[in-house]
């Protein structure tokens, strides 16, 4: 069981590591690292789905008999783009969070946010 499906076990282990990092770490950068691990694990899972035993890359030249299923690769290209975009937006947010709070730790940010609310009762409208 484990022998024949070891790729799946590995990818799911990687997935869980990523998810654990997202949940357990308070540092925003580390959270994003965990998120990326999680996503990449899923990409690997997809790629492994398309693998055909003894198959070559899905480029059909003369003499190619068996080749891996190309569709997962195409899908994962799209998914990688999505993942990169997510990471980019996330990092941009982290930069702006650091600019305005001066910290990367979630609990510190929350702490400052609460103290902010105590001191400024009303906040004006941005001009």
């Amino acid at each position: 069981m484990i022998g024949s499906h070891y790729v799946y076990w590995l990818t799911f282990a990687l997935m869980m590591i990523g998810l654990y990092v997202v949940i357990s770490h308070g540092n925003l950068i580390k959270k994003l690292i965990g998120l990326s691990l999680f996503q990449v694990a899923v990409f690997l899972f997809y790629i492994s789905l398309g693998k055909v035993d003894g198959g070559t890359a899905p480029i059909i030249t003369e003499g190619t008999q068996t080749y891996s299923h190309p569709l997962p690769h195409v899908l994962i290209l799209t998914a990688i783009v999505v993942g990169v975009a997510t990471l980019a937006v996330g990092l941009a947010l982290v930069v702006r969070l650091f600019e305005s709070y001066g910290s990367l730790e979630e609990d510190e940010i929350l702490q400052r946010d609460i103290s902010d609310r105590d001191t400024t009762d009303r906040d004006g409208v941005a001009s």
Partner: peptide, 17 residues
């Protein structure tokens, strides 16, 4: 408000998962 940044970040993490 700057709190919006944190809200967006948290939504990003949860939403992406």
């Amino acid at each position: 408000r700057r709190r919006a940044l944190l809200a967006a970040f948290r939504y990003l993490v949860v939403g992406s998962v």
